[in-house]
């Protein structure tokens, strides 16, 4: 009896659900472009939160989109959502994949169903013919921009504390690469400490603390994200070592959190490199081109990413680029 009741209940729910879907489908026929957006969990980081908010703000009905969202940090769940979106008959599938592997079959399904796939933020290991475009950050270029800035400071000697992100992540590899190459190429660039703080402020604080306790001199802290730079600065404050514009130690961070840019504005930090989470405008450009029947000049689109210098940053920059 109970089972029957349950079955009845489920059936009713499904019917209600269908009616709901039907209603949506009717409304989306008013020229709206149907997009299914698969992203990572917005709680993952400040970067992801900004990314998700940017997507939500852009893909609205006012802008001519009927968007559905799915969030997961797990590849299988993302693939399931992708299949659901394909069955729902979306026009575009926007994807920031949790893992690089395992996407081939579902993307083939999408191709067969006439769904166009656009990758953002992260690339995947699949045949490029399976997607229309891929919008990514070039982490290595971020590192190069930052290191070029550091070089332009023309210090007589660079004694660098290099605080790395979680080893093996794309951001860590890209941002470390340029610095390590430059340190090897120049005799007056020394990396006095190179350690991973796994993106964690407190680990960074301990690493810098250990260098201070050991009495090793240093004049640059190169942290691969803002949190770690913040932790490093906390250790400096404790030891009364001055930092920032025109002070003893140069502080460099990444990601352009709003509070970090404010530190730049106040002159407490020197440099912050951007990792652009605002990808929605790039995606809408592509969709517009595809809708107009144009072909894209290139498949992989690398976003413009800035590096902010404390001496030139303005309040407007903080408001616009802070995440």
């Amino acid at each position: 009896m109970k089972r029957k009741l349950l079955a009845l209940l489920t059936a009713t729910l499904m019917v209600v659900g269908l009616v709901g879907c039907g209603g949506e489908a009717a409304s989306s026929e008013g020229g709206l472009i149907k997009v299914g957006i698969i992203n990572n969990d917005p709680n993952e980081s400040g970067y992801r939160t900004a990314n998700v908010n940017d997507m939500k703000a852009t893909f609205t009905e006012e802008n001519g989109y009927d968007a559905s969202f799915a969030y997961s940090l797990k590849n299988e769940e993302q693939i399931q959502s992708a299949q659901k979106f394909i069955t729902d008959g979306v026009d575009y599938l926007l994807l920031s994949a949790a893992d690089t592997a395992g996407w081939d079959s579902v993307l083939k399904d999408a191709q067969d169903a006439g769904v166009k796939v656009i990758l953002f933020d992260r690339t995947i290991d699949a045949d490029p013919s399976l997607y229309e475009a891929s919008i990514v950050s070039d982490m290595a270029k971020e590192g190069e921009t930052a290191v070029a800035w550091l070089k332009s400071q023309n210090l007589s000697e660079y004694n660098i504390i290099h605080i790395q992100g979680a080893m093996g992540s794309a951001a860590q590899i890209g941002r470390s690469g340029a610095l390590v190459a430059e340190a090897e190429a120049n005799a007056n660039w020394n990396i006095v400490e190179q350690q991973t703080a796994t993106w964690n402020a407190e680990n960074a604080q301990q690493i810098v603390q250990a260098v201070i306790d050991a009495g090793t001199p240093f004049n640059v802290i190169y942290a691969e994200n803002d949190d770690m730079a913040k932790g490093a600065v906390a250790a400096l404050d404790k030891a009364n070592i001055s930092h920032g514009v025109g002070k003893d130690v140069i502080i460099m961070g990444y990601d352009c959190n709003k509070w970090a840019l404010q530190e730049l504005l106040a002159g407490n930090w020197n440099y912050d490199g951007q990792c652009n989470p605002f990808q929605a405008s790039y995606i809408t450009d592509i969709i517009k081109k595809l809708e107009a029947g144009e072909t894209l000049a290139q498949k992989t689109i690398i976003m413009d990413e800035k590096g902010f210098d404390a001496t030139t940053i303005t309040q407007a920059d903080v408001d616009q680029y802070g995440i």
Partner: peptide, 16 residues
């Protein structure tokens, strides 16, 4: 103690 150390929190990595 953790939030007081840095006056802020990062949910994904704090006390990981």
């Amino acid at each position: 103690i953790k939030v007081s150390r840095l006056n802020t929190i990062n949910y994904s990595v704090v006390a990981k």
